[in-house]
Design a protein around this nucleic acid. Sequence first.
DNA 1: GCTCTGGAATTACTG
DNA 2: TTCAGTAATTCCAGA
Length: 938
Amino acid sequence: MQDTFCLSVTSKFSFGAATGKERGLQLLTSLAADMKSAEEDAYSYTPNVSLSLPLGMGSPCLATQYHTLQSSPVISVSSCHQTGYSSDNHAASGYYLPHSLRPNGAPALESPRIEITAYSQYPEDEVEESSSDDHIIKRGVNSIVTLTLPNAEGYRDPSCLSPASSISSRSCNSEASSYESGFYNYDNSPQNSPWQSPCVSPRGSSMLLSCPHASGPAGSPHNSPSTSPQIGAVAEEGWPAQPRGSRPNSPSYSGGGGGGGGSGGSMGKRKYSFNGTSYHQTPCSPNQSPTPSPHGSPRVSVTDDNWLANTNQYTNSAIVAAINALTTDGVVDMGEGIPVKTRKTMLDHSASMSLKVEPGGEELGPDGELCHEDYPSRLALKKESYCGGFLDVPQHPYSWSKPKPYLSPSLPALDWQLPSCSGPYNLQIEVQPKSHHRAHYETEGSRGAVKALSGGHPVVQLYGYMESEPLTLQLFIGTADDRLLRPHAFYQVHRITGKTVSTASHEVMQSNTKILEIPLLPENNMRAIIDCAGILKLRNSDIELRKGETDIGRKNTRVRLVFRVHINQPNGRTVSLQAASNPIECSQRSAQELPLVEKQSMDSCPATGGKMILLNGLNFLPESKVVFVEKAQDGHHLWETEAKVDKDSIKSNALVVEIPPYRNQRISSPVQVNFYVCNGKRKRSQSQRFTYLPPNVPIIKTEPHDEYDSLGTVGLSMHSTPYYSQPRLAPIMPVADPEACLVGGYPSCPPRHAAMPSSPPSSSPTLHDLSPVAFSKCLPNSPTHAAAPPGPMVAPPIQDNPGHPNLAHPPSPDHNSSIGLLHSQGSPNHLNSPGRHNYHPIYTNSSPSSSPASHPSTPGGPAESPFVQAYSPTQAQAAAGSAQAGGRSPSLLPEDASPPSMAITVKQEPQELDQMYLDDVNEIIRNDLSSISVHTHA
DNA sequence: GCTCTGGAATTACTG
DNA sequence: TTCAGTAATTCCAGA
């Protein structure tokens, strides 16, 4: 199997564990086979994907990102336990796969951004076509490899880059998240693409070439001012002709967008923006805020037509790609990337900003005059300082002056989903941040560092790292919606300094996303207290106007702290880990008015209801109501009922509710619904997931499998687990075709799935899908498994993350794991926990729960049971087989597996299953789950 | 004098 | 098109 596996994949996956691994491999293999796609051929990584999926599923740790500095981001997957990491250079890494790339060729992940996506813009074909060259990925991904700066070996700090180069580089870095853009964008992460910072290396000079658009900018890197013209040009492309006023969107803006407060003041500022310079033009505000944040929202650019065009044309040549990238950047970043307002603000604040700058001067360029356009140059400046030993935080022993080993062109883009653990390493958020943190606008002063619930600050620790060399922990603000984790376009991390801050930090920009770099020192057990990170809010209008930006800022006020660490391996590769915090609500209003459910004592119960559930959270009022809702896939309500709240027990942070009976007491499989706390009109908490189980056990069938039992058992345990409806981190692995699952799946299983409004099951489907189980679930939709099962059956297993419906969790035989899943899933927190990871390897999040105690810091523990072990090939096969044979959708499997509460539930009567399902289906139909397409598996 | 916070006024946006 | 309510953004003021 492995051989096969290897072949398809990159060739090097060493699965440490014996049997389990083998099984996993088998599964993978089979999956891979199923998944065949043109892409595979084209991209070596495709195979990886397949493989990776399982792995990922198995454990978060499984996949690990490897990269060689020089080579393009090749990533090899490894199970947590694996001792050996693949050393292949070429291997495309599944991990790093841009989301955009879908093995299946299916449309990219559905999600990336809230509403709109540019994916469509980028046909996957493009991507796949490049297939000829494994290394070359469409979008120049491969090219990246090619491009790799010869000297890349040494990571170059932007700082080192020549200004000019910096510019180009910057431009090159379009932030658009790879998946958003639909294709992988090396630029995104400067690190990712060697070329990314052409500037970086003189050789990169070619880079300059590359940036046609950027050319202007490139040409004048530093010159911020000068650049402006160019920028303007660029901007034009990207932008609508409109005046680049900061907020084209809102005419009103002239007045000052929302900024009402001091209308006058705000107005002035905004107008200023307008007048002063067009958005794009504003090239240089000398003072631009040192902080990159404003500028960059990552997503911007990729979407540019230019970019596409270029990309397409030159997929083959790395150079071309590089050029394209540059171009893109130039276009995007320069003009669009920076919100007018922002600039304005920056100007205004510049002075202050400069003050803030540390000795390192990281923030402001020496010039202090950098313009946004110059942003690149700014970067360069920063980097320079960086190189020079940028920040010095006197207080902290750690000296930034050290070159950062891990920095390499091949580092994964910020929108890539990474595992929280790999091999021996495990990155965990030991102390989660508070669920509310009011972000500050540029027009405001800092609102301080994000705090922990306990009153302290979040704490992050890397386990399993035994070297004496300090590492750098990266922190950026990520999204908290149902989709894959990615840099948040409307928020940036903000470095907090001062006497009260004990942790040294350093800011760097990557793909328009500000990253805070914090030292992880062996002497501190690779543990860092995050007391230096605040959250900056960018004006919606500024960001939304950016070309390529598809997210909307309105009501998009939840974020997560995303931590990353890159560990160099002896073989020259780099392991990248990522952990995301629980969601943080950043708006003032939300923090004050909206109820928030942080935990729920149970996430499932029999359809008969009647049990009491305890909700912990914030802003609960005596008049708070709890409403259970089931929605169809299309969003329409299938059922809605208000639960009885125990008025006597209401506290601002706790609520006891009686679970209402489900509308249909005869359900034969778990049904997923949602509930939310409502404090009044428009004051609702996020939807929380809840699962109704068949009243009387014999629910589901299951795969004729031995291990099944465990599953059943597992499912049973009800747990109080915090449960966020929000999406979890995106799966690590690139999904073959997330959408397939989502889209296809949904249709097929409308009723139950539909239930989860807030978090589309598919939401982060992607990676999961890949896993065998997940796969199966997805199958219905997936091309390969055309025979989708009937929707009704689909009810996902309980606890999934809202964001990720079960896909993530296949019914794992493993009891432990399963249990972990159940519990953990419910709560976002758990997701990350290593232990839980076993089942949710995919998720990068770390949860508080994941505390060392609960999760052995040792990688071995939880992580170990990667998916591989968890799933035996047989199971997988069985599942698949059953699905097919039975005619049921694989999705069913999960259900079976997970029915939580009844330990006994499992029934192993394959033969009868069909009938059961039929009955169920019929019943469902009768119940008029009409909107849903149901099929019987006859 | 500055930063951090909480609160609220004003304006933009949505339905 | 107008209006009311909600959300966003900016200010103010106190600790």
